[in-house]
Amino acid sequence: MNDLEARVLGKTWFYPFRLPSGATAPTYDGGKLDLIHHTRTQMLDAALDREFGGRFEQLSAIDIACHQGWFSAHLAQRGFASVLGVDTRDEHVADATLARDAMGLNNWQIGQSDVHAMSAEQFGLHDLVLCFGLIYHLENPVGALRVARALCKRLCLVETQVVPGLTGWVDYGSYRFVRPLKGSFGIIDETEETHGPEASTTGICLVPSVEALVWIMQRIGFARVEVLPVPDDGYEQLVHRKRVMVAGWV
């Protein structure tokens, strides 16, 4: 075991990174949450194989809010020509850098930025854009989705917690002007948790319904939008539609 692997194994991670030696990084709660990462990875792989046919050697990907880099590492291991993981927190950038170096993934680069400050001019256009576990921690999720669309030239995958949807009609200024609801958002308070590594940086979180997410992605420029299927033995929140993964094609 080299020094980099020893450093990885010497701390507790959010993700169960598998190291070149075969050792696995220890995770929170003794691995009780690992299934969500494996389920999302399985869904990601199914989408990648369907879209790209397993051929990634000429493709680029960007992982927005990459956290410690689990999905960036997976894309690099699957053979993407270049993978760029971006996160706003110093500790996540440091952890992702350690994970990358310990696994020797030279096709994975790491950058630092808040999602709302990102642009195609700075970060480029990519065949694949990932936006996993992010928008439900934001007070401006629509703005983040616009960034994801701006960086995407082929496929964007968005994974998020969702809230129950509302349907119906609204008197919009007068009973003579009635508009249909296209979806809804729930407000979640994380203002006491902004110090936490998996929480919002501002504390005000607008969580979309599935209908809202699909409608917004269609309106901001994705030509086709689909909610992706979940493995029957997957993580319970995804199986029961408390979380969803949605694909948007340019």
Rank of each mutant, 00 (worst) to 15 (best):
S82Q: 14
G111V: 05
V93L: 01
M245E: 03
N107I: 05
Q58K: 13
H67C: 08
G196A: 14
R7Q: 10
R241E: 10
H137F: 12
T194P: 05
A81S: 14
A46K: 07
K242A: 14
L181M: 10
G168V: 13
E193G: 10
S113Q: 08
L48Q: 01
S184N: 08
L33G: 11
C66N: 00
L166H: 09
P229D: 12
G234L: 11
G22F: 12
Q77H: 10
P16S: 07
G196R: 15
L238C: 02
R40C: 08
S82F: 03
L75K: 00
V170C: 06
I64K: 00
M1S: 08
E190T: 11
L238Y: 02
G165R: 11
L151F: 06
L138S: 06
A46G: 15
I188K: 10
V93C: 02
T191E: 13
P141Y: 06
G10P: 04
S119Q: 04
H38E: 12
C131Q: 14
Q58P: 02
R50A: 06
G248Q: 10
T39L: 07
A61L: 08
E190Q: 15
A199S: 15
H195E: 15
D127A: 05
R224W: 10
I110D: 01
N106D: 14
G22W: 09
Q112V: 05
V86A: 11
V158H: 00
R50H: 03
G124K: 07
F185H: 03
V162W: 00
V225M: 08
S21Q: 08
Y235P: 03
F80S: 02
V239P: 05
G221L: 11
P20C: 10
F52Q: 03
R100W: 09
R154K: 15
D90I: 12
L19M: 13
S209I: 07
G124L: 05
G79A: 13
Q112C: 11
W70N: 00
V246A: 00
A6N: 12
R179V: 15
A144E: 14
V93R: 00
C66T: 01
L75V: 03
G30S: 11
P16D: 03
L4D: 03
H195W: 15
R179G: 05
K11L: 04
G248T: 10
V207M: 13
P208Y: 12
F222I: 06
P208C: 13
I187D: 10
T201W: 07
Q218K: 08
G104H: 05
R241C: 09
G173I: 11
L155Y: 01
L238K: 00
G168Y: 05
E190M: 10
T39R: 02
I204C: 13
R89D: 07
A223I: 06
F185Q: 01
D233W: 03
H137Y: 08
F71N: 00
